[in-house]
Design a protein around this nucleic acid. Sequence first.
DNA 1: CATGAATGAGGTTTCATTCAT
DNA 2: CATGAATGAAACCTCATTCAT
Lengths: 216, 216, 216, 216
Amino acid sequence: MNAQHKRTETGKRMQKVKDERRRAILEAARGLLLKNGLDGVSIRQIADISGLGLGTIYSYFSGKTEIYATLSMEAFDLIHESLATAVSSVTSPPEKIRAIGKSILEFSVKHKAYFDFLDYFVSSSRRIFPMQMKSRIDKHGEKILAPLHEAIEAGIELGVFKRVDAKQYALIFLGMLHGITHLRKLQKTMLEGYRFDTLYDQAVECMIDSLRIRQQ
Amino acid sequence: MNAQHKRTETGKRMQKVKDERRRAILEAARGLLLKNGLDGVSIRQIADISGLGLGTIYSYFSGKTEIYATLSMEAFDLIHESLATAVSSVTSPPEKIRAIGKSILEFSVKHKAYFDFLDYFVSSSRRIFPMQMKSRIDKHGEKILAPLHEAIEAGIELGVFKRVDAKQYALIFLGMLHGITHLRKLQKTMLEGYRFDTLYDQAVECMIDSLRIRQQ
Amino acid sequence: MNAQHKRTETGKRMQKVKDERRRAILEAARGLLLKNGLDGVSIRQIADISGLGLGTIYSYFSGKTEIYATLSMEAFDLIHESLATAVSSVTSPPEKIRAIGKSILEFSVKHKAYFDFLDYFVSSSRRIFPMQMKSRIDKHGEKILAPLHEAIEAGIELGVFKRVDAKQYALIFLGMLHGITHLRKLQKTMLEGYRFDTLYDQAVECMIDSLRIRQQ
Amino acid sequence: MNAQHKRTETGKRMQKVKDERRRAILEAARGLLLKNGLDGVSIRQIADISGLGLGTIYSYFSGKTEIYATLSMEAFDLIHESLATAVSSVTSPPEKIRAIGKSILEFSVKHKAYFDFLDYFVSSSRRIFPMQMKSRIDKHGEKILAPLHEAIEAGIELGVFKRVDAKQYALIFLGMLHGITHLRKLQKTMLEGYRFDTLYDQAVECMIDSLRIRQQ
DNA sequence: CATGAATGAGGTTTCATTCAT
DNA sequence: CATGAATGAAACCTCATTCAT
């Protein structure tokens, strides 16, 4: 075991520690975001919760903005992963779409923090991220369109769906699903007396229906 | 013209000035909100933009929260008015729904400020308003459901639409429309190569379609 | 009844109204002082409570400072009056001193607001009042020394008290009484287990004792 | 000198710097308090005078209140120390009481700042400190009673003083002394023509006299 | 590298006072 | 002469970020 090797060994261990710390920071930030909302996140708290020094945060991220950007990308990746898994578990295109719908709903419940967080950044017309960051984030965002896009294409291929522009429909569906998930926020006001789940399913069926070729 | 009359006259002018100032404050607040996001609004800025003194703002509103609440209610009322006008201009239920869709789209363009603003508050999971205010705001919010609700009911009555729960569908449609309007934000990224207007129309048709009784 | 007369009549009524308003302002200020402490008095509140307009306060007093100055003088006069009444109700010099002690104690309970208020201004080394005001206030302050001064002199005259410098002793006694009244503030801490009243009486007796000529 | 040692060394220096800063803040606060009164102290000023940044103050103290509380306790401790030293320098009980009197007078001159400060808080009827703080402060305050208490007890033990409740008399004397020191403020008004020192001594003798057993 | 003390800009709010009506 | 709307200075406090150790 020579010096070179040892250095590498140490380097590896170091890398591992650094990765863990990075993760700890993101986890703390995400947790705070969920608990306290967007303004309720201070670097000081992130440091405390992640067990790191205040200044240390800045060796891992250039600032609060970059932490948010990273969380955004993570969120998009997580959603994409969910959708990819979902579609691969079933075969018929309509089922794929249902799976995607279910998957998004589940995600918006289970990872509420992430979901609201994305919402905030997508909704906000304000320039939060500098151009360069924004581009990087968007790359991750676009990926989540693929599973739906492919499911629709598959349906067309199989002659089950109308010959529509698959990507266009994927966009519409995603927009709609996104809108529908928001209804949950109204559960205690406008939605009184209704089950959000039922609404959601109905909305998904409504979308599939509009794609399906009608036998006359 | 006696003293009494004069005093009244003066009183009227004063009232007008006060109304104008109130409006100036709200306008400034709305503008800032949209440009800089919720945290990007400071009372100092509102004062500067509205051309008033800092302390003056506090004699018109008890604080930032009340300003936001007022804007929310105004926005809801404006939308409701738009929708009500829209539905009354056509007669057939499907046309009414199209009119509503068009109306919302137009509103989201023309009063982008207000629309994004509402979006922000509906989207935001954070507790912004104290309970009492929230209730008052919700009352205004619920009104915008009515025109769509009635249009669907009318369609059912006429035998054009399936016998669905009208309110439930109204909710779904509104959620969807809301989601779709968001797509506009992606015009420069995911939507590249597509016309937002086309997507929007398609989405509306898709909704009407899912309601219509199919002749076989 | 000619115009001149009428004007005078009106002038009299006017004067009465003005006096009442002045009093209302002082009363409001005093009340607030008692309830909220020195910082808890705002001109706005004084206006509200006294039933006058905000700006009106400034036609009666040049500002907050003058209100305080007036209250100070009133307080001194009130104490003086109490003491004067007290000494005149008894005849023997020791009794007069006891009456003064009792009178001060009573005042410090009954007019707690005034008493604490004076305390604040006497204790405070800060220049609160401009020179001119200060002089005017001091004139009122000095008056409260007289009854005690005279009681001691009377005692000396009658051969009951030692031939001391009466004014000097009056000052010492007043200082002591003032110090003792402060003990009441410690009733819940240092004074636990003791009755403040007993302490007070004991202190007064102690003072009288030190004046009395001892029969051997 | 290894790394560990070095770190400790640095730590010590750091601690020293922090102590100095803490002191600087307290000193600035005390000075301002005396010059401008309680409301005349702003954190901004404290920062400026102590040569620190505004925010820095908040890393040493949680706020203005805590600064005041700290000053109070320091002042009590300082007085206690003075008294303890004073009584231990003489032996006969009357001399001890004289020593205490002299000590308090000296303190009120030498540490005028602290003395007036305490005065302010003792006099002020307003609730300045939250319960918990108040308790902590009171603990320090009560200590200053002990030397006087013990001196009186010693006198009783020796048969020089009457068999009075020693603590009760200690309280009375302290209250009186406190009151007498206030007379100094009147040096330019009511006290004109009198020497404050003489008054003070006379007052102390008067107290001792009232304790002494009279030989008939 | 990790640390956290120091910083000060910036936010909200209160309030004495002025002045046009 | 009474009024109260308008004003802005000044207070407190938080927090992202820097930088010496």
